[in-house]
Design a protein around this nucleic acid. Structure first.
Lengths: 243, 243
DNA sequence: CGTAGGTTTGACTGATCTCAAGTTTGGTGG
DNA sequence: CCACCAAACTTGAGATCAGTCAAACCTACG
């Protein structure tokens, strides 16, 4: 039976192989990384803004998000994450965390020593390329979020977020495109879209009344993917899907 | 007398040296890159969404921005750029452009062959590190923009944008912190903050009436940096200033 | 000195927020 | 299995911020 650590390494290798044509030497280097796994409760902090991170965290199970906070207390979620995602790759090369990383459900995390990973990237160009590409895709998603929050109506923002979540979930083979269970509260959906939880609620109700989705608790069914996609102006290009 | 090409190489080397401790071999590799310079008129496209970019562009003179467009025609500017910035480093590793890159004033551009730069990064780990760190700072700024557009009032958004522009300009030694000339129209400020040009106008007028700025045409004077900074909730941490 | 693009202003509209009161849901201990 | 509790969700009414439309005013430049 595979340990958490073995599972973490397998997940990491699989992910990075999709991002660059890794050779044996590269995957060997990954297997040589110091890793420890941990269980973290829902809403636990993995990294706090201002921290000097010495470890990178890979999400093995559960869901997480990254967020920033206004000095007046306003919270903005800047990304959601699912199993297989590396949560704070930027701390490999930037010394101070500029945002929080937090679980949104109970989760299992693999902590990888940043110095090890940095050294491995330095010694293995293809590994560096895979990691770099991962951060570039991250950045592309941030750009789409700036557009989402800056230029779309409330209903379209929510629809777009649902589409992105569904698409990324399917891409990571975590479930079918049309049926998903949201791990986050409506308050968190609001923090991600620049809306209040009250308005998120109304927009979800509206998407349902438009026949785009069906809901039961946090289970969401996308009734007609093509119509939903169109309504949300969702185009997967920005996810830079590889493999 | 230095040619545009020499100027480009000097600028690039200076920038990357601030981002990683480059060695002689690394800077030699940079000097070996194929480069050609070009003058581009105001509002000219350098990259269009969907393009397969074969060159990376370094901005030598003038100002530029990157933007995305909604299918309904809404435009969102996701970043502004000034001399010394590399505009589309992400195209080194992502094949399709997910956004437009456009000048906002007349500009001088140095085009660097992407394949050359990719190869140089592959062969020189410190060069890769410098470029990677540059893209990570880029991503950090996108995160701050998501927060800006998602969670701040109109007046604070504009104030924050002005602070960022002033700070980056000073950091690149392009002028003093408190006095700047904006290269962009109020419409473009609106496209960057998710507001209409009409509202940008009113917010600028308000910042002036609050005694935070003085304006004359597009010249802006920040009357009291400490107060402005506080009002805008501007904290330079996210710019990850190095050197 | 005429023109076009950019800025400024006003009046009205509408999307989203705020506050506040229910209602449902999921988990926990008896 | 049930009763209870806290958290999350839902709904309503009124307030507000920002958008829309339209006109007038600059200002740089040919």
């Amino acid at each position: 039976m595979a340990s958490d650590k073995d599972q973490a390494l397998a997940l990491l290798v699989a992910k990075l192989c999709r991002l660059a044509p890794l050779q044996q030497a590269d995957t060997d280097a990954i297997h040589g990384l110091a890793i420890r796994t941990a269980h973290v409760r829902s809403h636990g902090y993995l990294v706090r803004e201002g921290d000097t991170a010495v470890d990178c965290c890979l999400l093995l199970d559960g869901y997480a998000c990254r967020s920033k906070t206004t000095s007046k207390g306003g919270r903005q979620i800047v990304s959601f994450h699912m199993p297989g995602d590396i949560l704070d790759l930027q701390h490999l090369l930037l010394s101070r965390a500029d945002h929080d990383v937090q679980t949104i459900t109970d989760a299992t995390i693999a902590w990888i020593a940043a110095a090890d990973l940095r050294q491995a990237a330095h010694d293995h160009p293809l590994l560096a390329e895979a990691l770099w590409r991962d951060t570039l895709i991250d950045a592309s998603i941030f750009r789409e979020w700036v557009l989402n929050v800056g230029r779309r109506s409330g209903r379209a923002r929510i629809a777009h977020l649902l589409c992105e979540f569904a698409a990324r979930r399917e891409q990571a083979r975590l479930g079918p495109l049309e049926n998903l269970e949201l791990p986050m509260t409506q308050e968190e959906l609001g923090d991600a879209t620049g809306l209040t939880s009250v308005h998120v609620n109304r927009m979800l109700a509206e998407l349902q009344s438009l026949g785009l989705i069906e809901r039961k608790g946090r289970k969401v069914q996308i009734v007609n993917w093509a119509r939903m996609r169109h309504f949300a102006e969702f185009d997967t290009t920005y996810l830079h899907v590889v493999g």
